[in-house]
Design a protein around this nucleic acid. Structure first.
Ligand SMILES: [Mn+2]
Ligand SMILES: [Mn+2]
Length: 294
DNA sequence: GCCTGGT
DNA sequence: ACCAGGCAACGCTGA
DNA sequence: TCAGCG
């Protein structure tokens, strides 16, 4: 055993203790904690935009992706003075407001960041995220399914941005004006889900029981509740290949890219080239559509 | 990874 | 001083 | 009422 290393770095004026920088967090990719923290810093302008002012859930892997993991919602005690929290339903959530918080959590081996779909203190969703969950561990039709949903959205007059979840699935994000409710999103989600399931009954399912889904892709329109979370855009995932939840061009969906194409070791270059694809789409007229639904 | 409580 | 345990559990759905 | 789900 090499002696454990411990040191302090200063991030945005805050002192943060870093332990075991050479510990392998993604052994198959050779990603140590040191490399992870560097990649988090590169991701931070993008990731933080979709985490700030929300209730944060992290998933931690103190011994790397192949070790035991646990969810953490409650802020640990003691908490660094610079970390803000917010209470929601009896849980004292961490707020991921800046790079200092991100690096602090990275040192704690928080490998995944799952923010709420609403801002702290609000009951309203920030965006509509259509969640497609494959039943199989590898789903070659996931981009085909994504394209189908995208076409339906287009026919409804809605622009959207697909993103890999970083695991096996995809989310399709429709920016919305504030004022749309979670009830409204479930309603329009159910509507779109019924439509694609009817048109492609072998590809999509709305079946809630796993054992009845076969190998179809679950159209999960029930994610839209206050307090529920989804993998943030640009969050790393605790998967063997260190995949990152990555917003895509629709053209890339047509070209059938794989979720494993986008990972911690190549995401920086992509972001420099493409910027934040999500930011480029303005709020869409979702409320009018919901209002017209039966 | 790190803190706490029990031994 | 050392070690084991904890770190999310809960609301909603469909039957 | 409750197992199953995310
Ligand atoms: Mn999903
Ligand atoms: Mn889901």
């Amino acid at each position: 055993m090499p002696a454990a290393i411990k040191g302090t770095i200063t991030v945005d004026g805050q002192e943060i203790t870093i332990t075991n920088p050479e510990k392998l967090l993604w052994p198959d990719c050779g990603i140590t904690k040191r490399i992870y923290l560097e990649k988090l810093a590169a991701l931070s302008p993008y990731l933080l935009r979709y985490c700030r002012d929300r209730l944060l859930t992290v998933i931690r892997y103190p011994h790397g992706v192949s070790g035991m993991s646990f969810y953490q919602k409650n802020a640990p005690d003691p908490l660094p003075a610079f970390v803000q929290t917010a209470v929601h339903e009896n849980i004292n959530y961490i707020k991921l407001q800046g790079l200092a918080e991100l690096i602090w959590l990275g040192n704690l081996a928080a490998l995944e960041f799952h923010p709420s779909l609403h801002y702290v203190g609000s009951d309203l969703p920030c965006e509509w995220m259509i969640d497609l969950d494959p039943s199989r561990e590898v789903e070659p039709r996931i981009m085909e399914a994504t394209a189908i949903v995208g076409t339906v959205l287009t026919s409804l007059g809605l622009s959207s941005v697909p993103k890999t979840s970083g695991a096996t699935g995809v989310q399709i994000i429709v920016p919305i004006e504030t004022g749309v409710t979670f009830d409204g999103l479930r309603k329009i989600g159910h509507f779109v889900g019924r439509y694609v399931t009817e048109k492609h009954p072998n590809l999509f399912t709305l079946e809630r029981l796993k054992k009845n889904r076969g190998d179809k892709i679950y159209f999960d329109y029930l994610q839209h509740y206050s307090g529920k979370t989804l993998a943030a855009p640009y969050t790393p995932r605790a998967r063997p290949l260190a995949t990152v939840s990555t917003p895509l061009l629709w053209e890339e969906v047509r070209q059938n890219v794989s979720p494993t194409d986008f990972h911690l070791l190549n995401i920086e270059e992509r972001l420099q080239r493409m910027g934040d694809l999500l930011e480029k789409v303005p709020p869409q007229p979702v409320q009018q559509l919901i209002a017209k639904l039966p």
